[in-house]
Write a protein that binds this DNA or RNA. Sequence first.
DNA 1: ACGCCTACCTGCTTGC
DNA 2: TGCAAGCAGGTAGGCG
Length: 304
Amino acid sequence: MPELPEVETVARDLQRLVAGARIVDATVHWDRTIRHPQPAERFAAEIGDATIRRVDRRAKTVLVHLEDGRVMTVALRMTGALIVAPAGTPPDPYARVVFALDDGRELRYRDVRKFGRIGLWPGGGLRSVGAGRGARSRRVAEGAGPYRIGEVFSGHGPEPLRRSFTVARFAERLARRSAKLKALLLDQSFIAGVGNIYADEALWRARIHPLRTADTLDEREVRRLHRAVRQVLRDGIVNRGSSFSDYVGADGAPGDNAERLAVYRRTGEPCLRCGRRIERIVVGQRSTHFCPRCQPGPVASDTT
DNA sequence: ACGCCTACCTGCTTGC
DNA sequence: TGCAAGCAGGTAGGCG
């Protein structure tokens, strides 16, 4: 999907474009886009006539805060996009939910692959977006109904761009885990917002092999990885995100970051640091790109 | 805790 | 040209 930088770009665009606008109508073209607790049939009625106060982001989810305190969450997953269309823009066959605004514009949720989900939550208590198995088992353990706010939004790891995400905190979390770094960076309960593109980019930047396990990093490597994760995400935001096929900002324009990536989808091309050809392997069923020279292999002792 | 698998969807690219 | 296989930015959930 859109990863952290793409979602951040969309949220900032929306804040600029639709904060203060009123939603006067909503049309759901694909029911399953609407997740619990609002059945799709009721969603349009529930959201109708709501004014948008503010738009921001948590992990990879766009949060649309309404004046009455309720929050609409939009998880874009793989191909979701939120686009503000000026009045008179021709309909989009991939628009799954369309919000009519009071000034004639439309806020369109477009999603070719239909993986994305939109929720509408009561005010007060929305804190963080649930991720991983932990979130569900916690709900069960507490005996709460499914999707009670607070539980739904409780499973995410730290936001990597916050000041509270320190090297020390990262080091402590890494030391407790024996998983491969690539898999760990993709785990939203470990760190929020990193996806396949930025995981590969961060590891290349830190000069660490994707198959290294978390608890084998020394202090300097942890520091490099911490810096690298933050830097690739910040660069992504500055460049308005990485576009390959579907991702666009809320203004409908693709981002500029894809052409600046060092390894992602650059298999066989020269490493920007050393010239060696970039390799592609599969880790946890995900495409993984790295430079075999700059990012030396995890084990040298197997055969010796 | 972790790895592996399937499912959810559609469209584009690649290879025969 | 046609057609099938493989691939894609994410994540939930089941099993071992």
